[in-house]
Structure formats: C-alpha cells, structure tokens
Design a protein around this nucleic acid. Sequence first.
RNA 1: AGCGGUAUCGUCUAGGGGUCAGGAUAGCAGAUUCUCAUUCUGUUGACACGGGUUCAAAUCCCGUUACCGCCGCCA
Length: 481
Amino acid sequence: MSDIRVRIAPSPSGNLHIGTARTALFNYLFARKNNGKFILRIEDTDLERSNTEYTQNIYDSLKALGLNWDEGPDVGGNYGPYQQSQRFDIYPKYAKKLLESGWAYECFCTPEELEAEKEESIKNKRPHMYSRRCANLTEEEKAKFRAEGRIPAIRFRVPEGETNFHDLVKGDLHFDNSLIGDFVIMKSNNTPTYNFAVVVDDMEMKMTHIIRGEDHIANTAKQIMIYKALGAQVPEFAHLGMILAPDRSKLSKRHGATAVSEFVEKGYLTEALLNFVALLGWSPSDGVEIKTLEEIAQDFRLTEISSSNSIFEYDKLNWMNGQYIKRMDISKLTDLAIPFISCYDLNSYTRPQLEKMIASTREPISVLSELTNDVKYFFGEGVEFEGDVMDKVIKTENSQMVLKYINEQIKDWAFDNPEKLHEQLADIRTYFKENHGIKPKESMWALRAAITGRIHGADLGVIIELLGKDRVEKRVQACIF
RNA sequence: AGCGGUAUCGUCUAGGGGUCAGGAUAGCAGAUUCUCAUUCUGUUGACACGGGUUCAAAUCCCGUUACCGCCGCCA
C-alpha cells in the first residue's frame, strides 16, 4: 500500500453530477492504479444549500457506479469526521494561527461597503479586488467597529510575488499574486469559506494529490498560499478539462439528464456511463474502448489525460450502453429492466419467461427505457396496431392469404418446443416463397403484424411461445377479413 | 476588461519534426437475417489562422482568432 491519498469532495447541493462522477472516477482510478486510498468528503459548509437527501444521492450514485471509497462519512477512517459540517470547530483554530502569524487579518467591512467598492471598480473598468482597507487596522479602530456591533470576517493577506505550480495535466502554471485580492477565509458567521476549508481538510486528511475540474485552477493559487502560510506540505495538483454540452455550454438541465441517478432512471447502465465518461479525456493504450473499471484502472495514466474540454454527446453513450445491454448477464439485466416494464402485469409470466422476453428484446435497444414500448405486445389480450400497419401490411392480399394459412396450421404448432416451432415457421416461409413467390420477409411480416401490431420486434418464435396458443390464435383470427 | 487554460474528422480521441495523419462513434453505401433493428464489410470526413525555426512543421516558438474557466463572507 502506497501512501497516495486522493479524494472526491462533492457538496450536497444537488444530486451527484455526471461531471463530478467523472472526477470521482479519475481519482478512484489513480488510487487504484497506485495502490492508494480513495476518500469521500462531503462539503456541506453552506448549510443553506446543503441537503441530506442529496448526500444520500451522492452515496447511492457513487456506490451504483462501483466507485467505493476507503474512508468517508459512513465508513469512517483515521482522519474524520469526513463531513465538513462536523468539522466546524477545526477551522477557527487554523484561522487563529494565521491571525497570530500575521497571514490573516480581521475585516469589518459590511456587504454594502464591499458592494460599493466593487461597483466603483467596475465603473472605472478596473479588475475588482478587495481594497485592503482593513488590512492594517489598529486595536482602537477594531474596538470601535466592535462597539458598533460589527462582526469581522477573516481575510488572508496575499503576499507579493508569484504563485507557481506544476499541474500534472496542465503543466507549469503561473499566477501573479498582485492580481489576487485578499480573500476571506472565515466568514463573519464563523464558518470557513470553501478555499480555507478544503486546504485545512486536505491537509488534515493527508491528501497527496488533488484531482479536480479545471474550474478550480484559479483557486489553486490561493490554496497553495494557505498551505505555505500554514507551513504545510503542498500536494500535487491535476486539473481536468470540463464536460460541456453539445452547444459548448455547461452541461445543465436543459440539455437533459445531468445527475447520475437521472441517467439511471432513463435506462443507462452505470457500467456504460462510467466507461463512456472515462473515454472523455482518457484513452486506452490498446484501442479497446469497452473495458471494466478494473481494466481501466490498470491502464490509467494520470499525466496522459487530455487537458482540453470535451463535449458530452449521446451518440456514443447510446452505442456503448447498447453494447453493455447486449453483453450483460440476462438475470441481472432482467432485474434492471423490471422498473421499465412494471407498468404491465408481470405476474402473467414466470421469471424464466420474463428473462426470455428480455433476452429476445435486448438486441437492438440502446437504452433500457425502450423496453417499455418494445415489450408491450407481450401483455394483454388484444393488439395495438402501430401506424399504418393495418392497412399497409395486414390488409394486403398476400398477408390475408398467409394469415388464413397460418390460422389452419396453428393447431399443430409446437408451442412448448421452441426448436420445432422455429422449424414450423421456416416451413411456412418456404411454402409461400415456393408456391406464391412471397418473400420470407413478407410472410413473416404478416404474422408479426397480426400478433404484435408491428413489423419489427423480438424473435417470432419467442413471441409465439410466450404469448401461447390462445392469444396467438385469437390475434391471428382478429386480422383475417 | 484582466488573468489562466485549450485548439487533430460532426463528436470522443491516437500520434507528435519525415505517417497514405490511426481508431471509435455518428453519417453514407452494400451484405446477412423472419424484422428500416442487430451483426458484418466498405466508405465520406480533421491537424483553427498567420508568421517564424528547419532540408523538412500537424508536431517546436511567437502572434491572432475562437472557445472554456476564474474574478463571492457559493462550493
């Protein structure tokens, strides 16, 4: 076991986002590849927006994806608690340390004053930065503010110079400190800001590598300053490109699903989702794209991740999901399929029959939700005819001839012997092809249309077997005019 | 505006001074099949632009453009 430690630190202000899932995946992969630890920390310092329902969704989604964590709020660990709201007593101690060493100072500015300052700089077309007006307050001035009832926030005193670091995926990055204003580390309500809490937590939790989205790059400079002021070891950083919607904007609700749980509800398999998202930035060294989590972990190289943004396109996700659906163990797939077909009377079939139904329907689909419609004709007595199937297929002369012929044959069909049934269907095809010049496709279309209301779907033999003699006969007869 | 980042087929990407610039997906065409599906085969399609450096640049350097991100007592 190496001492590499990485973490995913979502804030429970929403369900687990697909982008967060990818970040979690890369952290997990890196830990796996290097025999390190993968830690889950819940960043709920913003009590207003945090919600335990979302925390649960984060747990559930991560687990469903198979991204198991070694330490976290629920499983514990040596560096807990792993939920920031339970760590509120820790941050003031570090803030005090910074105050004493002069790295931080109390700021008594009110939101209104700050707002005015900001507007002033905007008016002068200057980049907005805190004026530092509280940077060197005397004890008397502070006392005066206190007497007015003002409660200070604590700001970090940004030093002169540059903050540089080597990003594992972006390369060397430089920041001019003079462009970074003194930022708040403790709010006046005595809770830490994000930048302060992460540093304290990552430091206390002994994180060695911080792998996160590139929207945090600018924060990194601030965080490094805090690490240094605290005399702590600065971890390695790796910033990933973002996942964008096809219109190149941030992936949001209006583009469809954004949360892992929403994708699952739409019929995506977590394995496919994970595999797909891994390919956004990372690519397999052997060119084989469909891989298990474990295989990806073995082939994972953090420094070779693409550093550009990538667009989330459904085309390939759908294809990949279809691949997983085709390959999945049928019993497992049936379990996953049930929510999508529970609108029907599933008790009318045995479990083995249900599995047969799914097995024969899975082939062409790319999303499980397609099953709802694709499996419809297996249920109920009658048939719903799709589009112009009735006029264009069933009512044709040829079809009528086929259906009449079939109607006479049904009594001899081997409903309980799939192999024989297939032979009998083949005989019908040959019969009509040889005697009437009707293409196999056409004769089967007549049958299929009569018993399913459509011209494509599952294997006819399976459909007939599952429907049973009664229903097949009735449905065929109902189409003879 | 400023600061930071990125730029290879529509999309995800491989490659990285000399390649027919490779793969996947999507598209298109064909084949198989009881199924306009699946599967199989074939095929269209890209180095953002402009300057350098070099015998040679998609690859290295500079600039431009475009896009993304950041500029909160949000995380």
